[in-house]
Nucleic acid binder design. Structure first.
Length: 558
RNA sequence: UGGGCCAUGGUGUAAUGGUAACACAGCAGAUUUUGGUUCUGUUGUUCAGGGUUCGAGUCCUUGUGGCCCAACCA
């Protein structure tokens, strides 16, 4: 007898999970601690959500914890407003930090450690200009050269550094540099800057300091202070790792270790903070939370769910090679989530009037339709069927192509959850514009109790003109016309001019009137939509999150 | 051209010296009162050369290609 394995096939691990499992197995650590370390100088985007899901997800998986630590070492660019937005975004994604901390909490300790370094003769105050220092650093192929400040005595350096802190020098007058190796093939080891002078107000420490530590002097020590076991960052920090380790080793403090993974890139969008900022500041979008933006605030407003983003983060995986993920995967994730959860509603975005000639004015036939065919518990709702209706302009064609099975002259179509109608007459104005379509309905074809024996292929959505309400609907498309705008010489030249289409005269069913901002629906046959906070009681605004898959549109392209 | 990181279908990610697989995308079909959903089938993959080995996507080696590094940014 063939024995069936009793242990489930072990799921494959990404390279960081392998490291963690190894560290746990060897007893190097008994539990893990990760951190998500944003700089509060802008909004988080979906690339950050990969990092957030990774850091928090790892901790959850292995029974550890994750800190949210703001890397706030540059007072000039950082603001409290961003701190609050970032905390909100992390929580929205579904994660609660073990602690919310700030690199600025460690300024005093960092200062003390810098003095320790100076005392050991491993740091010096340099009065050279940035240009001079750049020149002295050499190039990747030629070693750097030392200047006279490199030989200043520790005692003198200590005094100088204290004067720096005391505010005796103006901005940029001098810096503190580590004394490491001017010939290192790693440019980051050629006596990197540790402190610079900035007489600037810090969002947390106010005017207490006028010297601020550089990233390399703050990050590893901050990790170490918090006893972070696995400090996970993106690939471009690989060359910094040698310096990260040098600082920790030289100070002899808790040895946090840095590991690097490839950041997320998504087709048809840009991910750099600088470029996103340009889009906002130059008015290409309405703001950081414009639903076309890849910011967490933007995709949240667009109608994405945190669950779908987490699912996406899982599906894209974690590795070290550069990647460009297709937007279609993100769209798949939100459709899959919303298909199961979103209530269905009827909406007509480009209305065409249909008059049911054999239904008297004032008569209402009440219909019933399911709120979500994927979820019987979602219940049903009533729909009024009246003489005058709205259907989608796309659902009628005077000269239909083959395989078109919606409404056409002389043809029949099923109004979903209602009756089959037959097109009897097309009404046009004097210049030939389509005005309305006159139809008859088949009374025996009532949905659910159809005795007509008629078979129609097409089913379309519709609204009673007598109780439909008006609403604004914003249709979004990709912000850029090319897959990788960042690879372009001028990324802005590839902006899609049709990324936003505003429909102010859409019709929605009455059941939508009580929708609350942020609520998500499927507009039957159209896509998933989310009520925008711009909505007022008299003007509801819906954002299209994503369309439904449309195999007819695909057919038409052939 | 100093150093570093990386190379598996169209896009991602697995395979940890032993039958190259999973997801998305694509294509075809079935079901469907959403041209949605669901289901079925299907196309297509190890950068190149050399070596080790009974056996290499995996190890070694030489190339090639991509990305990163010389901010008082992070």
């Amino acid at each position: 007898m063939k024995s069936e394995s009793t242990t489930p096939a072990s799921e494959s691990l990404n390279f960081i999970e392998e490291i963690i499992e190894s560290d746990l197995a060897t007893g190097k650590y008994s539990s893990i601690l990760t951190r998500f370390p944003p700089e509060p100088n802008g909004y988080l985007h979906i690339g950050h959500s990969k990092s957030i899901c990774l850091n928090f997800g790892l901790a959850q998986k292995y029974g550890g914890k994750t800190n949210l630590r703001f890397d706030d070492t540059n007072p000039v660019t950082e603001e409290t407003e961003f701190v609050e937005g970032i905390i909100e975004d992390v929580r929205w994604l579904g994660f609660e930090p073990a602690q919310i901390l700030y690199a600025s909490d460690y300024f005093e300790q960092l200062y003390l450690w810098a003095k320790e370094l100076i005392s050991k003769g491993k740091a010096y105050v340099d009065f050279s200009s940035p240009d001079e220092i750049a020149t002295q650093k050499g190039t990747p192929t030629t070693p750097g050269t030392a200047n006279k400040y490199r030989d200043t005595s520790p005692e003198e350096n200590l005094a100088l550094f204290e004067r720096m802190r005391a505010g005796e020098f103006p901005d940029g007058h001098c810096t503190l540099r580590a004394k490491i190796d001017l010939a290192s093939p790693n440019m980051h080891m050629r006596d990197p800057y540790l402190y610079r002078i900035k007489h600037a107000e810090h969002h947390r420490t106010g005017n207490k300091w006028c010297i601020y530590p550089m990233y390399d002097w703050a990050h590893g020590q901050s990790d170490s202070i918090e006893k972070i076991t696995h400090s996970i960052c993106t690939l471009e920090f690989i060359p910094h790792r040698e310096l990260y380790d040098w600082c920790i080793d030289t100070l002899g403090i808790f040895p946090s270790k840095q590991y690097e993974f490839a950041r997320l890139n998504l087709t048809y969008t840009v991910m750099s903070k600088r470029k996103l900022k340009q889009l906002v500041e130059e008015g290409h979008v309405s703001g950081w939370d414009d639903p076309r933006m890849p910011t967490i605030a933007g995709i949240r407003r667009r109608g994405f769910t945190p669950e779908s983003i987490r699912d996406f983060a899982t599906r894209i995986g974690v590795a070290k090679r550069d990647n460009l993920i297709e937007l279609s995967l993100l769209e798949f994730c939100i459709r899959e989530d919303l298909n199961k959860r979103a209530l269905r509603r009827f909406a007509v975005l480009s209305p065409l009037k249909v008059v049911i000639k054999n239904l008297p004015e004032g008569q209402t036939e009440w219909m019933e339709t399911e709120n979500n065919p994927e979820d019987a518990e979602a219940g049903k709702r009533p729909l009024a069927f009246t003489r005058e209706l709205w259907i989608e302009q796309d659902d009628f064609m005077e000269n239909p192509p083959p395989k078109y099975f919606r409404l056409a002259p002389g043809g029949m179509v099923r109004l979903k959850s209602a009756f089959i109608i037959r097109c009897e007459e097309v009404i046009k104005d004097s210049v030939g514009n389509l005005m309305e379509v006159h139809c008859t309905y088949i009374p025996e074809s009532r949905s659910g109790q159809d005795t007509s024996g008629l078979k129609v292929q097409g089913v379309i959505h519709w609204l009673s003109a007598s109780n439909a309400q008006q609403a604004e609907v914003r249709l979004y498309d990709r912000l850029f016309k090319v897959e990788d705008p960042a690879a372009e010489e001028d990324f802005k030249s590839t902006i899609n001019p049709d990324s936003l289409q505003v429909i102010t005269q859409a019709y929605i069913e009455p059941a939508l009137a009580e929708a609350k901002a942020g609520e998500r629906f499927q507009f039957t046959r159209l896509g998933y939509f989310c009520l925008d906070p711009d909505s007022t009681t008299t003007n509801l605004v819906f954002n299209r999150t994503v369309t439904l898959k449309d195999s007819w549109a695909k057919e038409l392209k052939k």
